[in-house]
Design a protein around this nucleic acid. Sequence first.
DNA 1: CACTCACCCTGTGCGC
DNA 2: TGCGCACAGGGTGAGT
Length: 277
Amino acid sequence: MPELPEVEAVKRGLDQSIVGKHVTAIEVMWSKIMRHDDIEAFKQSLIGQVCQRIDRRGKFLLIYFDTHVLLSHLRMEGKYFLCDKEQPVHKHTHVILELDNQEELRYHDVRKFGRMELLEIGQEFQHPSLTKLGPEPTQATFSPHVIKEYLSGRTTAIKNILLDQRMVAGIGNIYADEILFDAYVHPEMSAAEITDEEIQQLYYSIISIMQAAIKAGGSTIRSYANMFGEAGHYQAYHQVYGKDGEHCSRCGTIIEKTKVGGRGTHFCPNCQRKRGA
DNA sequence: CACTCACCCTGTGCGC
DNA sequence: TGCGCACAGGGTGAGT
């Protein structure tokens, strides 16, 4: 389940492994990965182009070529691998970009949830998936004030707001739970009931958890690995995600698991109190 | 507009 | 050992 820190690690891997290389051929084995009806047109647009740079917005990867940009979302289990042409193709490999020097960039996705779409450069800024995104957590335009504005008048649970990419981009289920624990906020707290003090704390927790996770190369829970097949290390710092039944590191209370907005949610019932009704 | 929920997928892990 | 089923979850789109 790549979230911002994991996608950032993939981005850095792509930076090192495919920038400057050119696409000689393309194979698409599972066409639903591609948001295009016309796979041939997709191939024709990309073949022959050189990869110029890699960018990331929230959990989206932007792989820039000469005239087009490949917008890619890994969703739950999407992965990119660079490998030699001779290596056997895994059954969950769905797209192959053949590169120079007998190399291939392979997209692998067990659950086939990931999506990619080729756009003409410039179009990406009008793409609905990207225009809807809020600021990056580390961007100066993200501030406690932005959070406050976003929460006012909303009745939904604070966790749903963190998962909503419009306020701030890149938080997924794991980091939402970790952030709320760090900020001493109950995941089901109604957005409008969050105090200014808690908003301030949430702001700091969002930034510090995301930065620490990026530094650790993300979290590996089930299957996440970077371009080089390496696991992330941030899972060693998880305080609540996947810790239900274990003791809270701060107070010893048993961590509970529940569902919020249909997502598995982990929290400490003592550190994260629900106020009011 | 705000909110909820089904959908897309397959491997894993549980209960029996 | 094996079968059936709930579960995992991000974004999208339909429905209320």
